[in-house]
């Protein structure tokens, strides 16, 4: 395929992909009074100011950062040793366990929402941020495990052997040699988990009730109905709330692609 025909395929897709995001971003600069016009006569920052006033949105972004960050950290802490065990220590039935974990994580989140609701209420974690991190992590660990096992398998086995010969215990070899070398894979897995937690809506809307604890997807989904704000303000709020995760994606885009593809090839 020539570069030109590659462009002919890619360009319409790009337009299709970026249309809603771009249009929403443009709408956020649109003066409210001019919504009936096909294009605005001038652009304004009033909507962004209105979206930020009251602090609800900043609060939601902070909540989302806390929840997503904690989920990523916890998922990596659980998945990295387990992945190392499957990849290098020859845990019997490791592949079966891996497949089983992945299969369980495919079960519909909605099925577990009700039991988790009851359990969180009993543990007094309902409507708290840790109460959201706990179930997010259980959905993220299988994915992280899957990706990290691939990462550890991709590291030359000679490295592990050399570390052992030089006197490292298996745990020492893992901690001092393999873990630092697996840093790119860890970053990728952490990033994917972060994005998943950042975007999750179902559990967040079910388990959180106080407006001050809302995460970004909940705040956005409930925005219009609750405050009766004009749509332009919602557009501004959405645009502002997305900026952090887009910034992260820009910084780590290579990692994201590399990680997704690594997991896929191993699959």
């Amino acid at each position: 395929m020539s570069p030109r025909s590659a462009w002919t395929i890619a360009l319409p897709y790009l337009a299709f992909f970026l249309l809603p995001l771009g249009w929403l971003a443009l709408t956020s600069f649109w003066p409210d009074a001019e919504l009936a016009r096909p294009l605005p006569s001038h652009l304004t920052l009033e909507n962004h100011a209105a979206a930020l006033s009251g602090g609800g949105l900043a609060r939601a972004v902070l909540n989302s950062l806390l929840v997503s960050g904690a989920t990523a950290a916890l998922a990596l802490a659980l998945a990295a040793p387990a992945a190392f065990a499957v990849a290098r220590l020859g845990v019997r039935g490791g592949r079966a366990l891996l497949g089983g974990a992945l299969a369980i994580s495919m079960f519909p989140p909605i099925a577990t929402a009700a039991p988790l609701y009851t359990a969180l209420r009993a543990a007094r974690l309902l409507d708290t941020l840790p109460g959201l991190v706990a179930p997010y992590t259980s959905f993220s660990v299988p994915l992280a495990l899957w990706l990290l096992t691939g990462t550890f398998r991709a590291l030359p086995v000679e490295l592990y052997r050399a570390a052992r010969v030089d006197g490292c215990t298996p745990l020492g070899a893992f901690r001092r040699v393999l873990l630092p070398l697996a840093a790119p894979g860890l970053a990728t897995a952490g990033l994917l988990v972060f994005v998943f937690a950042w975007n999750e809506l179902l559990y967040a809307v079910t388990f959180l009730t106080s407006p001050s604890r809302r995460t970004v997807p909940v705040a956005l989904a409930l925005f219009g109905g609750e405050f009766r704000d004009p749509f332009v303000v919602l557009a501004a709020a959405s645009t502002l709330a997305t900026a952090p995760v887009v910034a992260i994606a820009v910084l780590f885009q290579r990692r994201v692609v590399a990680g997704l593809t690594a997991g896929a090839v191993k699959g």
Binding site: A10, Y13, L14, F17, L18, L19, P20, L21, W23, L24, T27, V195, W198, N199, L201, V216, P217, L220, A221, F231, L234, A235, S238, A241, T242, V245, V246, A249, V250, Q253, V256, V257
Partner: peptide, 21 residues
């Protein structure tokens, strides 16, 4: 990178954009 963007951006954002469109 741009094609990956809809996946990274919160789906609530994309859906709101579409709802508006």
């Amino acid at each position: 990178f741009l094609i990956l963007l809809p996946w990274v951006a919160p789906i609530s954002l994309g859906a709101i954009g579409w709802k508006w469109i």
